[in-house]
Computed example of a mutant assay.
Amino acid sequence: MFFQELKSLLNGCAALAVTLSSGREGAITVTVRPTPKDAKDAEALAIPLVLTGTAEELDAQFVGLLQSYAEEHQSLAEQLEATRNILEAAKKDASKKAEGAIRKSAPAKMTPAADDDNDETETPEVVGGQVEDNLFA
């Protein structure tokens, strides 16, 4: 049963570290530290399970507590993923709205006004001197 519960917790993680240390008066401290698959989840999902008790207490209760921890860990992972999906959808929606607002506020293309004169271009007269190129003609 112990390894089956560890396996269920390990399914959502890249790695799982289990540390045992001895304490006062025969107590044992068990630390179960998951390493999330995604580095950006490390802070939210890497909270360890730390239990201290006698060997008898741990034999009687450890698997049940580990099972509860695994369920909570999975629930947190699912909530985190759902929150990411909501935020991503909100970003896309905001981006689309911003693009639409930019399009609406862009100035309309100007069309040249119709000239009543004929379409022939006028050549400037040269009055005694050098002709300069006109960039605006």
Rank of each mutant, 00 (worst) to 15 (best):
S8T: 02
R24D: 03
G53L: 15
L51N: 00
V30D: 06
Q79G: 02
L10F: 05
V18Y: 10
E57T: 07
G26Y: 01
E43K: 11
Q61N: 15
L49Y: 04
T31R: 11
Q79R: 03
I47R: 14
P36I: 06
L6K: 10
V63I: 10
P36S: 08
T54Q: 13
L20V: 14
V32F: 09
A14V: 02
L80H: 15
N11R: 14
V30C: 10
T19C: 07
A15C: 00
L49D: 00
G53S: 15
S68A: 15
T29D: 09
E71L: 11
Y69I: 04
S8A: 03
A70R: 10
T83A: 15
V32C: 07
T31V: 10
A15W: 09
R33W: 02
T19V: 10
P36R: 06
A46S: 12
L16A: 00
A70I: 04
D59I: 02
Q4C: 14
V32E: 08
Q74I: 14
E72W: 11
F62H: 10
A44M: 09
L16I: 00
L16C: 00
L45D: 03
S75R: 07
D38T: 10
R33L: 06
P48K: 12
N85G: 00
S22R: 10
K7Y: 01
E71V: 11
V30W: 04
V50L: 08
I86M: 00
N11I: 14
E81L: 09
L87P: 04
S22F: 06
S21K: 08
P48L: 08
T29I: 10
G53Y: 15
R24E: 05
L76Q: 15
P36V: 03
S8F: 01
T19N: 11
T54A: 14
L76C: 15
S22M: 08
A77R: 08
T31W: 03
G26H: 01
V50C: 11
T35C: 07
K40W: 11
L65Y: 05
E43H: 11
L49G: 01
E43Q: 12
S75M: 03
S8Y: 01
V32Y: 02
Q79L: 00
A27H: 07
V18E: 12
S75W: 03
N85A: 10
L20N: 14
I47Y: 13
P34M: 06
G64D: 13
S68T: 14
T19F: 05
A27C: 04
T19Q: 09
L45Y: 00
E43T: 10
L58K: 05
G64P: 06
A17L: 09
A39M: 13
K7A: 05
G23F: 05
E25H: 15
R84D: 01
K40D: 12
Q67N: 08
D59K: 08
P34N: 04
T29R: 10
G12F: 09
E25W: 13
L6T: 08
S8N: 01
L80D: 13
A70S: 11
R24N: 03
T31P: 01
E57D: 03
V18G: 12
T52Q: 03
H73G: 06
G23V: 06
T31L: 08
A77S: 05
V18I: 15
N85C: 01
K7D: 05
Q67G: 04
P34S: 06
G26E: 03
S75A: 06
I47D: 13
T19R: 12
A60K: 15
E57P: 02
A70C: 05
K7T: 03
A44H: 07
A55N: 02
S75G: 04
